[in-house]
Design a protein around this nucleic acid. Structure first.
Lengths: 148, 148
DNA sequence: TGAAATACGCAAAAATATTGCGTTGTATGC
DNA sequence: GCATACAACGCAATATTTTTGCGTATTTCA
């Protein structure tokens, strides 16, 4: 992981579909070694994968909420996590130290869809004691780009 | 946006660098129209971009925290957002309705680095009244994949 | 300082992207 | 119900990119 690797990572974070040829000229390498470096970064797991970034509102998911979850029943932890894993509208979930126990990121078509989701899905997740919904007003920064 | 477009989006969310040829055979199209559909999805902004997904711990950022921010001074909103925008270790930021005002996602090398970051950077952000740091114990779901 | 390892660039072959074009399928209006 | 228009398809040719072998240079370590 030298300066060139970091430059390559920086480029591919900004445009994951950039050709190896383009990356090479950006970082000042010829194609072959640049290509080998990219492959090696993938193999080593530094580059864990590539993703197309989809605009939620363009696929009908204009509503975004963050949900803080506190569990009453630690015995239901596994069941809770499994249920979260399965639901496609819960797009992110992390377990936290302290309070709350979990943070979820949820997408929905609109407010009414979200109300339905909240009543029918979220409150029914196993072991839930308390839910706090917070609607996202604006994204200042999205899609983590790591400094390298 | 028909079924084929949705299938293409699903594939490219899972592997953003998949060749148009591979996508075509997955969704049951020949290369040419598949390629044109991908370009059109990009042009229309449905596909907002592509990103390499970097493993934070492989680039020395093993520590992840969520920070809830409440502002005391709404007049400093712009300054706060600008400062957040500028700091590379704050990788995500959203403004919320209600309490707290903001949620930040912050990476650091380790706990001691985070303490430094907290004391020197986060508490110094313009207009901050209250900060609540929550350490991420585990990622159940990461990197939003939208259902389409 | 010299040997070994590592990374480079060049070049060739394979694969993929990209575009024109004729055809097919589907919707619209008469 | 049929003709016309429009949109999307597949094929095929060309341009570009990926991928690999190989010889050379550069760094590392004893």
């Amino acid at each position: 992981m030298d300066k060139l690797d970091r430059a390559i990572i920086a480029e591919l974070q900004l445009d994951g579909r950039m050709s190896a040829t383009a990356v090479a000229s950006k970082v000042g390498l010829s194609v072959a070694p640049c290509h080998r470096r990219i492959r090696e970064l993938e193999r080593a797991g530094v580059i864990a994968g590539y993703q197309a970034v989809i605009a939620p509102e363009r696929v009908g998911l204009a509503f975004e909420a963050l949900v803080f979850v506190t569990l009453k029943d630690r015995a239901q932890l596994k069941a809770f996590e499994a249920a979260v894993e399965k639901d496609e509208l819960i797009v992110e979930a992390q377990r936290l130290f302290g309070e709350p126990d979990f943070l979820l990121r949820v997408y929905a078509k609109d407010l009414s869809h979200y109300q339905h989701l909240y009543d029918e899905v979220l409150v029914e997740l196993p072991g839930v004691e308390k839910l706090t919904s917070t609607i996202v007003m604006r994204n200042i920064k999205e899609r983590a780009i790591l400094p390298v």
